[in-house]
Amino acid sequence: MTARSLVTLELNGERREAWVFPHQTLMEVLRDDLGFTEVKYGCGEGLCGTCAVLLNGESVNACLLFAIQADGCAVTTVKGLSEGADLHPLQRSFLDHGASQCGFCTPGMVVTAYEFVREHPRAGREEIRAALAGNLCRCTGYVKILDAVEAYVRSAEADGSP
């Protein structure tokens, strides 16, 4: 059974297929076979969060999931949040607050924050701080990331549309 098998994903809302070996991780297949390079390799231990994607709406380590296990699932990356030329308000908030420096943690950070705010639309700064603890950033010292997510929560509250 070391043969390839066909995996179907709903990738950022679009149906995609890939032939994968069992040992290929979702990260590898997304990056190398399907061109979703926003899913970053950072450690391969499930620790750093640079490969975070949403699997059926829940954040997972794409480096620790075999692609074959994701067959039939919906996968969302940071690119799935923006709509064409328009940034998602959370991405806009990251941009406005200077929450990205080198940007390598940003795709994972944004989807993690997106998921958290979706589940906790009234989250305060300390809850956000705890929620992002699984995504390492080496550049920003986190302050501007928290600023960005907090401002997004406030504006989404104001809009009534998280």
């Binding site: 499930g46 620790l47 969060g49 975070a52 699997l55 829940e58 954040s59 997972v60 380590n61 620790l64 999931l65 993690t112 958290f116 929620a131 603890a133 699984g134 995504n135």
Partner: peptide, 9 residues
């Protein structure tokens, strides 16, 4: 346990 992604899986 671990981080949110670890707890999800």
């Amino acid at each position: 346990i671990g981080n949110i992604r670890v707890r999800h899986r």
